[in-house]
Design a protein around this nucleic acid. Sequence first.
DNA 1: ACTATGACAGACG
DNA 2: TCGTCTGCCATAG
Length: 111
Amino acid sequence: MDEQLVERVLRAVEQIPRGRVASYGDLAELVGVGPRLVGRVMSLYGSNVTWWRVTSASGDLPLALADEARARWADEGITWKPNGRGCRIRDHRVDLTRLADDYERAVRDLG
DNA sequence: ACTATGACAGACG
DNA sequence: TCGTCTGCCATAG
């Protein structure tokens, strides 16, 4: 894995404000890579950051992570509908353009 | 070198 | 609302 890329992805995740979520695709667009790569980075290094604010485009997470994530969501006031279908997580997606500002800053301050 | 498979997404039937 | 297919990048076999 390209360390630079990993850093950029993780940095992007950290820009997601409390109480909001972003999809893998959102982050991918922000970082400038394919969504699958973001998924891969998260699977490897996600536990180091606020991974529960990253959901799939449909608002779901793998079963194992869902339990943990739900607790976090409840704590942050993120509403969701149990039983997958019609998950309301989508209503909490961040405005990508606003996220981009903070992200640019974060990446600049990195080097 | 080639294929299959992912914490994925978008288009289409 | 489901399958299916294609694009995406890295890894494993």
